[in-house]
Each structure stands twice: as C-alpha cells, then as structure tokens.
Nucleic acid binder design. Structure first.
Lengths: 213, 213
DNA sequence: TAGATTGTTAATCGATTAACAATC
DNA sequence: TAGATTGTTAATCGATTAACAATC
C-alpha cells in the first residue's frame, strides 16, 4: 500500500494545475521548480516535495516539461475520468455556478439540474433543462452520477443530502450556509464564501491596529 | 508586541463564528469545548488552544458562554468595524454574490457596484444602482471603501486591481480565474470554486482506486 | 465540597525548508 | 564536460494533541 498523501499537498494540487495550464497556454515548454516557485510564491523545495509524492516528473538539469507535468497532475486529480454530477437548486447561485464553471476541465460533466419550484422547472440553464426535484431519484438510479452540487436553502440541505445518499450519491459540493457533517464513506466539500469576507475583515483589522500605534 | 497568530488559527475563526451563531440562534447558552468539538469534528484541545490565542473566554467547570464567545470572536474578526466595499463587475457572478451574501454580518457594507458595459449600468442589484466603471475613481476618493470585490473577466483583473490600488483600495476579494499576486501592503483573497471541484475529483478517484483492489 | 472543564505546559506529530549527492 | 536542477534525506520549524494543575 502506498503511503497516504497529506491533505496539505492535495489542497495545493489544483493550484499547481492552474498555473501549469496558464504556462502551457502561454506557450512555455519547460519550467524549473525555482521559476515556478517565483511565480507561485511558494518555495521550490515545497514544489519538488509535493510532486515527488506522486512520482519523479522532472529531469535533473532541465526542470519540468510543462505539458507533461500538466497532464500528469490532471491524471493525479482524476480530471479525465468523466465523473458526472447533478445540481440541486436552480436559484441564483445554481444558475451562476452552472453557467460560469468549466466543469469538464475540472473533472466533471453536469448532467442534470433539479428544483422543486414549478416556476423554474422546464427552464434552461447553460443547455440543461431544469427537472422537477421529484424526478431526481429515478434520474440518479438510471444515470448514476457520483456527485451532487447543492445550491439549496439551508433548511433543505440535510434532508436533500440524506435522500441523495439513499439513491447512491457519494460526494457533495455544498454551497448552502448549512455545513454538511462528515459522513462515513461520503466525500464533502463545503463552500463558504462568507468565510473569505470574514478573513478579509480580520486581516484589515489586524493591519489597522498595527498601523495605529 | 503580541505574538502573531498563525494562519491556521485565523482560517478556522470564521468556522467557529458560524457554529457559535448557529448555537446562539438555537437558544443554547453555554457550550464546553468537548461538546463543540463533537459538533465541529475537531479536537477539544484545538478549540481551547485556538481561543487562547486571543484570551481566556471560558470558565473552568462551566465552559463557554455562547453569546459572549460569539461576540468576542466577532470583535476579533473585526466584524463590527463597518468596513465598506465596492464590487467591480455586474455580470452573473457579481449579481449572485451581491444578492446572496449577508455582507453586513461578515464585516462589510457593499456601497457601490461598477461595470463598464453600458447595458447593465443603471440597473439595480439588491438595492444598489450599477454605476459606470469610469466613475469608480471619484467614488473611491469620496467614499474611501477599503475593499473591492472583483467579478471581472480574467483579462481585466490585473489592470483593474492596479487602478484601484492607485485610488487607495487596500484589500481584494478576487473571483476571477486569474490569480492576483501578493503585493506589498495589499490583502488578497483569491476565490477559486473550480479548485473545490478538482479536490472532489481527486478524492473520488482516490476512493475508486482503493475500492478496486 | 465534589465534579467539571478550562488554560497552559509538555509531548508528539507532521509539514516545510535546507542541503546536497545524483544525474541529465 | 560543466552547469543546472532534480529527487531525496536530514534538519528545522510549527501545529496538533495529550495531560493535568488551576479553579470555577
């Protein structure tokens, strides 16, 4: 059995992937850990350590081939596995996230959107027709998506998640204010945009105070 | 000089605040670190260590008074300082974030929204009239907001940020795909919702593989 | 008072950085 | 070959957990 990769490393992987994609798109073919560290504001040592959790992707004296490394990280992240996802909640947040997010280049294909409000059922979001929430059970049983994005009011979060787990959903991206507890065998990413505001508030306060004295 | 509080602690503060708010709203008056640790899936030791970076808010044999602790954390986060913010970009993301976010309970008051597209200038978002981007300089000089939320296309991010820094903006919450580099004296929170998708993809892949063997 | 639970120190654990031999 | 830069080990640093005396 391979040794488990630490959460800190995994959290950094998407950022590496983004930077390599940018480098690739701007036509840069090779990069050293030193140059990448300069661009990303991290140490070169950390980059080499992180990558070597998964294998030796570089070459002494040369650095890393951008295209190769980008592809390897995509594989590590599982971005080419064609995972499918459904979204529950076709309100503002659901619409915006479904429309603005490049799902396919982040590992998922969004195959269904559901809402319980008859007023939005039938409308079109980014090429997907919103279905009635009552149909989600049959849809999941038939199409077997592994992930669900929850953009529902906070009161509904827990019960919706439990229902979907019953249908076989194994992972959630939860946008609602209500935190989804960790559950055995279920993968959860809670997104809290308000937390970023509070962190900004803290950092501004902190600076204000150091400036005052 | 007080010793600097570590980034790990600061990152956890908003989550403590959310949980205390929930406890308060459900009428719970006191809580022990042990009970809170159970609810939050962290260790009681960590909770006590974290809080004691800022002071002793509890009482031996009793625990913590929920209302008092909530208020103290709000003060630590600087949520009552009435910071003001402007938003640049009145597209989908801007609209949704402006509409769905309880700014005032996260430390900020949103006082202006700006866009360069004449088609959206003049429209109303959550009670705020969208102004022409060309007017933002005068607005900032007059109203002195300290923070700007960027929901602009990635090509525009860097130049907009530089312009706003010129007008005196000191902190950014950046939603665009393009990462804003750390700059001397400027506070930056980059939000990357796509990263959460990639982390989910990684975790699903990881589980798939362990299941296969 | 006795029981509970904090605040805080000490021990452990893990993550980051530094250093350098291997090697392209 | 000489120079550059990786992969990897060792050293450092910091964060988390455990333990317990203080005390409400």
């Amino acid at each position: 059995m391979e040794k488990k990769v630490s959460g800190s490393v995994i959290n950094r992987l998407p950022r590496y992937y983004r930077h390599l994609t940018d480098l690739y798109d701007s036509g840069i073919e090779r990069i050293s850990s030193k140059e990448l560290s300069r661009r990303m504001d991290v140490t070169a040592s950390q980059i080499r350590q992180d990558l070597n959790c998964f294998g030796g992707f570089g070459q002494q004296g040369y650095g890393y081939n951008v295209e190769f490394l980008k592809t390897e990280i995509a594989n590590i992240l599982g971005l080419n596995r064609g995972y499918t996802a459904v979204m529950v909640g076709a309100g503002n947040m659901g619409r915006t996230f479904a429309t603005n997010t490049k799902f396919e280049s982040r590992g998922f294909k969004l195959i269904g959107i559901f809402d319980s409000d008859p007023a939005v059922v039938g409308s079109d979001i980014h090429g997907i027709k919103v279905s009635a929430y009552s149909e989600i059970g049959d849809f999941i049983k038939e199409n077997k998506p592994c992930m669900a994005i929850l953009t529902v009011p906070k009161e509904a979060t827990k019960s919706v998640a439990e229902e979907l787990i019953g249908y076989g959903i194994k992972a959630f991206m939860n946008f609602s204010y209500s935190e989804l507890r960790q559950m055995e065998g279920i993968i959860v990413e809670n997104v809290h945009l308000g937390d970023s505001l509070m962190r900004l508030s803290y950092k501004i306060s902190e600076k204000d105070e150091s400036g005052e004295r």
